[in-house]
Amino acid sequence: MTAPPFLPGPKAALAMLGAAAVVAFADLYLSTYAVTLLSLVMLNVALAVSLQLTNGLTGLFSLGHPAFMTVGGYVAAILTYPVRRKGFMMPDLPDWLATAQWDLLPATLVGAAVAALLALVVGIAVLRLKGHYLAVATLGLIVIVRVVINNLDGYTRGGLGLSGVPRLTGPWEVLVFTLLTVGLVWRIKHASLGRAMMAMRENELAARCMGIDAFALKLLAFVLGAFLAGAAGALTVHLVSVITPGAYGIPLAFSLVVMVVVGGSGSITGAVLAAIAISLLSEFARPLEEGLELYGLSQVLVALGLILVLRLRPTGLFGSREPAGLGRPRFSGGTS
């Protein structure tokens, strides 16, 4: 095997430059709405790619991303929240938190770390079992996180949600985060770690016989995915300046799964394209839904489309592959 691609291939470099150009253009000429939309699309890309690591490459089935985003978002928001309003909004905070007002970067890292810690606890409990237990446990986790945040109103303002979170995230921060996420997952996929993950996805018993510690590998993929989701949550909160306990829930979990499946389980390119397409679609479907008063229509259509994809092309648009020229060695993983 050739060395993992430390440098992006020519097309990937071009795509990165293109993304930067789009962000620069939007930043200079477009409305705040357009810039926010662009940032949210990029965050969805990062979320889908990080879920691709957990679900696509490793073959787990986690629905927990919204829970990790919520945790990362709340933790970071509490850390960056203006001190002068903290006493009023979050009266129960201990002194050291009540007087802290951090920058975005450390707050995001801590938020992500707390999300990862949560994933570690759940992962240790569930990842030794068969796949679907993880799905149900992570779904339960979404409910647990929502209920706990709702009830800890002295820290989180409960069901009212936290508004007035400082807008510290701009499109450039999001771009850097998204590129880092995609780059990280890309490198994992094309290193021996990623090959071990895919081997395990295809045949866990065989992978174990080759000396792969399946449990450790699953735990790593799950915790790393949660870390990235937590960071995405933190960035999102500081982009839209508000977070509520139910802001990220089952519908988002479903959308992310759709992005991974439609893009092709294991294909990073597929996840990126599917994330862009589905985010834009649901954004543009919103005025239509409101006009027709058919709330939920886009979800129904996406779900029906998903069933169709599963029936007609169960490996998704890209299977596990990446188009040639994106990285250095062309890699084709298992596609079954």
């Binding site: 089935f61 796949g131 799905a135 519908p251 759709v258 779900a303 998903l306 069933i307």
Partner: peptide, 9 residues
């Protein structure tokens, strides 16, 4: 599993 999730949606 994903298919039944889609049905639920």
């Amino acid at each position: 599993f994903i298919a039944t999730l889609a049905v639920s949606v």
